[in-house]
Design a protein around this nucleic acid. Structure first.
Lengths: 234, 234
DNA sequence: AGCCTTGCATTGTGATCGCAATTGAGCCCC
DNA sequence: GGGGCTCAATTGCGATCACAATGCAAGGCT
């Protein structure tokens, strides 16, 4: 949570005098979203609107908006009795459902993206993948998570399927907190097997089924690691 | 939109003196959600927060909350330039993606529900299905949509898979507006083939694959009808 | 007569205030 | 010394206010 405040504060205070365009609640949302995807917020931890707002230097209102959006996306949970919000806890059951859903949506997106792939996308993906590898080499968890997310969604966005894309986005948001668990248990070098190269190749040759297989394999391995981590934690 | 106001107003004004429990924004959300599911709000139509709030007799604030939630669920769209919100327009592309997603999630939920089914569920489903049939017989569109929704989600809730359930809920919300198009084109008697009996039977015998097939068939037929309606409209 | 411009009404956004409910800690009593 | 209780602080929710931007429309200019 410490890192969150600083990150958002920087984003929030980036206030252009005119033509700001991005609303405050959007910046807040994006910041919390990033914090969740990269797993910087521990599950089970309770947060309050006002404290968050104070930490961010804004009024509680835009925080409310951002939080409500995240709750709708199930990235945050709200206790019906308390009305106090927290990060959803990590259960094996939840992970199983999320795995299943991701294994359906994301390969589908990859397959569609393969049909629309071009050289510039491949170039972009290679660059991101290099960043992923370097993050892995350095053991930089945050950087790895950010880069990995960027890699996958650079592909998915190319599918031109906004409904499925938003589903994938929502799923990542929910899976995010689990990821930190993996690193906490098996360490950063647990994710060495790199299916990214496979995926890039499939996209380069415009092979939908290859892309589907590569992404499915990538996801499977990652989710399996999370599974054992969660099982070990229980 | 006219019907919406009355419906919500009634819900909103149901204010118990103490221990109200359900927040205003929740009631507003549920009302708009119902209006969308049953297709009472026409796509492409723009709505404003203040007018909605005035129509509902509440301050714009809870409406903002409800709307933001619906936007997160993609049940409402917001113009990035205008920042003015409207119901997402019906495109063949969107429908195709929604169909695909529904055909994956909902049969899966039905299959899981079959494993947990019991006599009370079957009894409940028969009652709802009777309501569905009567609504069809009377040509009562709103009632049919409400009952049909109730039927499906009575099943899905039994799956005990909240992640998948919320996905199904979100998808249904997005498909809702399309439904009215079907009735506008083919009329209420377009949906006579009733797979519900099949589904009930599969649940009664605790046959997951049977339930999966029945629901998949039900969905397929419905989505096909929407497809031709949308194609005809374009 | 047609187009542009100016003015007003309306929009979404954010801040501040008030309210009721819950929490948490300190205190008193047993 | 431990447990129950009370009171203050904090919480989320909703309303109202203020503001900048946008949309719309009437009026003036060419």
């Amino acid at each position: 949570m410490a890192g969150l405040g600083e990150a958002v504060e920087k984003m929030v205070q980036t206030r252009r005098p005119l033509a700001d365009q991005t609303a405050v609640h959007d910046r807040v949302y994006e910041a919390i979203r990033q914090a969740l995807i990269t797993g910087r917020i521990a599950p089970g931890k309770g947060v309050s609107l006002r404290s968050l707002a104070a930490e961010l230097g804004v009024s509680p209102m835009p925080v409310r908006d951002a939080v409500r959006r995240l709750v709708a996306e199930r990235a945050l949970a709200i206790n019906p009795a308390n009305k106090r919000l927290s990060v959803p806890s990590l259960t094996a059951d939840r992970l199983e459902q999320l795995s299943l859903a991701r294994l359906w949506v994301e390969p589908e997106l990859a397959a569609r993206a393969a049909a629309n792939a071009d050289a510039s996308l491949v170039r972009q993906l290679r660059a991101i993948d290099a960043d992923v590898d370097e993050a892995l080499r350095l053991g930089d968890v945050d950087r790895y998570m950010t880069a990995n997310h960027a890699f996958h969604f650079a592909i998915y966005e190319r599918a031109g399927a906004d409904v499925l894309l938003s589903m994938a986005g929502g799923l990542w948001l929910q899976v995010g907190p689990f990821m930190r668990v993996v690193f906490g248990r098996v360490g950063a070098d647990g994710l060495v097997a790199d299916r990214h190269a496979e995926a890039i190749e499939a996209l380069e040759t415009r092979d939908p089924e290859g892309a589907r297989r590569a992404v499915a394999a990538d996801l499977s391995e990652g989710m399996d690691k999370m599974r054992v981590a969660v099982d070990a934690a229980s």
